[in-house]
């Protein structure tokens, strides 16, 4: 299985993602520079965290103008998995691939640490290796981590089981419905604000993020076996 890691100027957490997929998961990942993007040959696209374009204007706002975004939208429409973490999630909301928007943290400051999440949906491509209501500990680091959707969208997300992860003890940063991770309508695009790629090794941040990547790989393997 081939993962593309879509790199924008300033995407600092591309290395975290690369390491998680190549060295820990044991799959194949390649960096794809945003203005040379050719995504067609890949099986999944990862939009990593960091500070694309220095987070100028608004986190994710400038990246959405990159030529890579049209390709990314087409890739998502094809049904293959797209994962946006941290700043990658912000880019996906800015580009309207995922609903909602990000506001400044309720406490106004950048916050970093580890946070407990509850897995809400265990049927998606990204979450089927977790147990329902499983609590996992995942590192986070963000200043615009306050996820906002309106009432109507929130109801729709709930009804369609599109909330993948919530903050177990409520969202300190103010996210609507304590949402930490959300799926698109088709269920093949996940945005998650905490950083599961930093929790794939016991000695670094624990291993609670690994099942997310294993889920993607598992679904791909099953599909490719059945197609064979």
């Amino acid at each position: 299985m081939k993962f593309a890691i879509l790199v924008f100027p300033g995407s600092g957490c591309d290395v975290d993602m690369y390491h998680a997929i190549n060295e820990v998961l044991g799959a194949e990942a390649e960096y794809v520079w945003h203005d040379e993007a050719e995504l067609a040959g890949f099986d999944a696209v990862m939009v990593p965290g960091g500070a694309s374009y220095g987070n100028y204007l608004r986190p994710g706002a400038l990246a959405k103008g990159s030529p890579a975004l049209e390709q990314l939208k087409a890739f998502a429409a094809s049904g293959k998995p797209v994962l946006g973490v941290g700043n990658g999630f912000q880019i996906l909301t800015e580009a309207n691939v995922l609903p909602g928007a990000f506001l400044l943290n309720k406490g106004l400051k950048f916050r970093s640490g580890k946070v407990k999440l509850t897995v809400q949906n265990t049927e998606s491509i990204f979450t089927e290796s977790y147990e329902k209501d499983q609590q996992i500990l995942i590192p986070f680091a963000h200043q615009y981590g306050n996820y906002y959707v309106d009432e109507e969208t929130l109801e729709e997300l709930k009804e369609n089981n599109r909330i993948a992860f919530t903050y177990t003890n409520g969202s300190v940063d103010g996210s609507t419905g304590h949402i930490a991770g959300v799926l698109n309508e088709q269920g093949n695009v996940l945005g998650i604000m905490p950083l599961p790629e930093r929790a794939v090794e016991e000695i670094i941040g624990g291993t609670d993020g690994l099942p997310l990547f294993k889920s993607i790989l598992k679904r791909w393997s099953e599909n490719n076996v059945s197609h064979a």
């Binding site: 600092g12 957490c13 975290d16 916050r111 970093s112």
Partner: peptide, 8 residues
Amino acid sequence: QFDSHARR
């Protein structure tokens, strides 16, 4: 306030 885990 510092991202202490960047670069894994």
